[in-house]
Design a protein around this nucleic acid. Sequence first.
DNA 1: GCCAACGTTGGC
DNA 2: GCCAACGTTGGC
Length: 134
Amino acid sequence: MNYFLVKSEPFKYSWDKFNEDGRTFWDGVRNYQARNNMKEMKEGDLVLFYHSNEGKCVVGVAKVVKEYYQDPTTEDPNWVVVDLAPVEALANPVSLAQIRAEESLADIALIKQGRLSVMKLKDTEFDKILEMSQ
DNA sequence: GCCAACGTTGGC
DNA sequence: GCCAACGTTGGC
């Protein structure tokens, strides 16, 4: 099982909207590194949902319900999407500042590579963030 | 709203 | 294949 983190700007696609929809295809990724990470997602993998810009915090957990396939919003075969569904909201959102302040999370791409929108997490990092949300 | 970081594009 | 110019992302 792998763990990931995806970013979304709440104005574009918020956690609330995601829960209303119940399921969505994760489109709009136009970065090769992020795309490659999406291609590694398998059904059942867990994904943290992060709000960028407004909020700047991890707000919930999602799961992969369908592996990658051609992005239906473009003809360009370079780009793919995965299907995600909400699992649960975090009791307390974990802010970027909290993550930055946590030594064991200093290496995650959210800190090191600010612009990457889909990233892989180690299971220990995933667990740590969940723990911080309790 | 500004600006730093960084990925992408295109001229050479 | 290098590198400057440009565009975009995202924190502040």
